[in-house]
């Protein structure tokens, strides 16, 4: 249990970093789009890199944070059936969902790495970086999904009543 608590504290930090990065990236997205307008109307020359850069950034905002959503349970889900279950049924229902999510995360990481390997020598048009960066967020999100699922399973086993689960409270920076 103390080890698990220590692991969770490390993951808290990882979550904090993902949020901080995403928030900064979101602010940059606004600036990119503003810069595009400014370039077109004021400088009379459109920057050609903003669109591709924004498309890349949105992947880095959305995918890792989606994995965080599994830890913080902020994704939309239908809870009609789970709500009808006994605590014991609820426990197994959650285990089932977590195993499914873990499998999905593993497949996501695996596919992300495969796609990165295949595209590493291609370039993203107009910004010139390797196309592998397009698929890196998949790999990150997949790995983080597996880790967060493992954490939730570990807590569920260690503490079935989940009195001390680290992420019951909503997150704030």
């Amino acid at each position: 249990m103390p080890i698990l608590r220590a692991v969770s504290r490390v993951l808290d930090l990882a979550v904090w970093i993902i949020y901080a990065f995403s928030a900064l990236a979101m602010a940059s997205l606004v600036i990119f789009a503003g810069w595009q307008v400014w370039g077109r109307y004021v400088l009379n020359s459109s920057p050609t890199w903003t669109e591709q850069a924004a498309l890349l950034l949105i992947l880095y905002i959305s995918l890792p944070l989606a994995a965080v959503g599994i830890r913080q349970k902020f994704h939309l889900a239908v809870e009609i059936f789970p709500d009808m279950l006994s605590p014991r049924g609820r426990y197994w229902q959650e285990m089932f969902v977590l195993v499914g999510l873990g499998f999905f995360g593993w497949a996501m990481a695996d596919a992300g790495i495969e796609l990165m390997t295949r595209t590493v020598r291609q370039a993203i048009p107009l910004i010139g970086w390797s196309r592998a960066y397009t698929y890196l967020p998949l790999a990150i999100s997949g790995v983080m999904t597996v880790i967060f699922v493992a954490e939730r399973i570990a807590w569920a086993i260690a503490d079935p009543k989940r009195a001390s689960h680290p992420q019951s409270a909503p997150f704030s920076l």
Binding site: R40, S46, E51, Q52, P125, L126
Partner: peptide, 9 residues
């Protein structure tokens, strides 16, 4: 002139 082009080098 400002000429629209597709997103390619």
């Amino acid at each position: 002139m400002k000429i629209r082009v597709p997103d390619a080098e």
